[in-house]
Design a binder for these strands. Structure first.
Lengths: 214, 214
DNA sequence: TAAATTTTGTTATTTTTTTCACATAAAATA
DNA sequence: TATTTTATGTGAAAAAAATAACAAAATTTA
């Protein structure tokens, strides 16, 4: 399925835009590796995997590279995304400044709390009742779930039945479906837990180092 | 290094607490697999990898399993964590209800904006100036970076120099580190981009299916 | 122009992760 | 008690991902 190379391709793309905005025209695998935290070999390997080639000793032309990467990632058009749940996390996403550059347009937010509704805002926030209709009339294909876990499954079901094909889910539960939909679960608690494990492992290692080596 | 099994172990643990709270005593690899989106074999393989065994045909005693998993994950004590940046995302994290159960205590937040400072709140928010001192006096080892990208590197440097060993970074840039600190970069924009890629791939697949098969 | 250097691109190798296949123990049933 | 059923546990195989090794092209330098 080759998931990791795809993810890195997105990272390369973002780095490329940054390099481009600095006025650079040409880039080396080494620079890209530094920018995304990979190795130069890995960058070239990824490119090779997707059939992208550069110039021996000359690196890559940023413009060429961008158009190839964008083609592979299907970023030739703007993707409309909705965010369901306008709490802290939902707001954080809706206020994320980087989306336009990524070809992502947050089309609307939804919330069950009447206080949060604001149809006139730059990114309007509608009541949850209107979710189904909005997805249908705007042919939304990608959505973010940022509601409490009790509400998540219900929201998810609406999305699935309306033909959403990609969901990033921030509610700490695993959403189930038989339908064809890519679901990416992001669990903020888990991210912290995982890093705590590795932090502890490092702590131990450091102490052992201190004991045995120095 | 075997990173994936560790991450799943955290997921199993959380699922186990949920099962336990439902009054269950015994659990099967199959149930755990469903709960975390893995397969039953994978669950058993993971357990086998960490030397955890159950009872043939009898599944696993939740209580036993939890104590073993917690031991492996080093969750016998509470980990104090600080959150730097009290914007939308930082607030989302500080308000996350699930942390106490995970043995995580958000000890404090930090922000550069004077308006956000609140020393009396349940989770106090201090000015950024006091970050270094706080880490030192409270021997903080794990931190979250939820500041804009321009501020991230500076915050990171303070953390590293004060001996933080685990960082979850939400700023959309890659923080460089030596071996002494585990950094996990979470890029919300990238999460969306990745799911858009897979959503598009599914769209295409569905259309092809419609064309060739039905 | 020849040699040295730099950087890509690819093949081979290793490591990590997932899946498959099936033996084995415990419990249930006949 | 013998048979069948249900799960676990693990060795082997396959797939995915990361790393290593090095040939080849382009450029620079001598």
């Amino acid at each position: 399925m080759y998931k990791k190379p795809i993810i890195r391709l997105s990272r390369y793309k973002n780095a490329l835009y940054r390099f481009k905005s600095l006025g650079l025209v040409r880039i080396f695998s080494d620079n890209l590796a530094d920018a995304v935290g990979a190795t130069a070999v890995q960058v070239r390997k990824d490119f090779s995997f997707f059939g992208i080639t550069g110039n021996k000793r000359g690196g890559y032309l940023i413009e060429d590279l961008l158009s190839k990467v964008n083609e592979i990632l299907g970023k030739d058009k703007i993707t409309k995304v909705i965010v369901v749940g306008a709490g802290h996390l939902g707001s954080a996403l809706m206020n994320y400044k980087g989306f336009p550059q990524l070809g992502i347009q947050i089309a609307a937010g939804f919330d069950i709390d009447p206080v949060k509704i604001n149809r006139k805002a730059p990114i309007p926030i509608f009541p949850l009742d209107e979710l189904r209709d909005f997805i249908r009339t705007h042919t939304i294909k990608v959505a973010v779930i940022a509601v409490p876990d009790i509400a998540a499954q219900q929201v998810f079901n609406i999305m699935i039945s309306e033909g959403i094909t990609g969901i990033v889910n921030f509610a700490p539960l695993r959403l189930k479906t038989d339908k064809k939909c890519a679901v990416h679960n992001v669990n903020l608690g888990l991210e912290l837990e995982t890093i705590i494990y590795f932090a502890n492992a490092l702590e131990k290692e450091n102490h052992e180092d201190g004991h045995f080596k120095s």
